[in-house]
């Protein structure tokens, strides 16, 4: 069996984000990148599956600042192959990325593709379903547990309110991982440094990216804080009356003439 994990780096919120003077994208001067938390879980889930069923694990990531460390860390955790996709990702979006990555994944012919269920920079939807569409394979998102049996995967999918469904999917398939069965493990720095000396990152250049389908961003801005808050006090009846009049003032409630 072969599992491909697609990982991307996203803006690290430890630094305050600022908008580029152009007003449609983030200012990258001080931008730090970090592995998308859900992708980190996808890597962990793949390694857990490898430990149980000795599958082959390949981790793929587009070239962003810090990606080498992310890939070597995945390798130190147990990934068998690490691939860095190179190209111009300055105005990247998930439509273009999914097409480009899917073309690489097709060559690898994995039984299962894992990726994080979402990322903080998903402007045009999360990448998992887009990958599945490009690969013409089934997709399940919000997955928090995976078991492999012959050519099927049994997955736990999380729904709001603590409901979990168990589903069986015929492979090959794409899964959007919400959480691995256990938190991503720690790898000692010395282990990562060792791997850096003994392993290679397989660099694969991507062809021109096809951006079609990506919505045009007309304005990017910090969410605006407004200072107005009214505390309503009094008896339940008084509060209800006041609420009704507020809703009317704001146009949420309208008087209907009977």
């Amino acid at each position: 069996m072969k599992i491909v994990v697609f990982v991307k780096l996203v803006p690290d919120l430890v630094e305050e984000l600022t908008v580029d003077p152009g007003g449609t994208t983030l200012d990258t001067t001080w931008l730090r990148m970090i592995i998308n938390e859900f992708d980190d879980h996808a890597v962990e889930q793949a390694i857990l599956l490898k430990e149980k069923t000795s599958t082959q694990v390949i981790v793929i990531a587009p070239d962003f600042d810090g990606v080498d460390e992310v890939l070597f860390t995945a390798c130190a955790k147990g990934a068998d192959q690490i691939i860095k996709l190179t190209g111009d990702f300055s105005s990247i979006n998930n439509h273009a990325l999914a097409r480009a990555v899917a073309s690489r994944i097709k060559i690898l012919q994995p039984d299962l593709v894992l990726t994080g269920v979402q990322a903080n920079n998903d402007i045009d939807g999360s990448i998992g379903p887009a990958l599945a569409a490009c690969l013409n394979q089934p997709f399940v998102g919000y997955v928090s547990g995976v078991t492999l049996e012959d050519n099927t995967a049994i997955v736990q999918k999380e729904y709001p309110g603590g409901v979990i469904a168990e589903m069986s999917i015929t492979l090959p398939a794409v899964l959007g991982i919400q959480a691995a069965e256990q938190p991503p493990r720690y790898v000692a720095v010395s282990k990562v440094r060792q791997v850096m000396k003994t392993s290679n990152i397989d660099e694969q250049p991507l062809d021109e990216l096809d951006n079609s389908g990506f919505p045009e961003v007309t304005r990017m801005f910090q969410s605006e804080t407004s200072a107005h808050a009214e505390m309503i006090t009094g008896s339940p009846d008084e509060i209800a009356d006041r609420l009704v009049s507020v809703f009317k003032e704001k146009g949420i409630l309208q008087r209907t003439n009977r």
Partner: peptide, 21 residues
């Protein structure tokens, strides 16, 4: 213990932060 990946999660967070930031 650490090389074997056996680290309490509180400590893991501090080590990861030290590495990253």
């Amino acid at each position: 213990l650490l090389l074997a990946g056996n680290v309490p999660s509180e400590l893991q967070a501090a080590l990861e932060y030290s590495q990253r930031y």
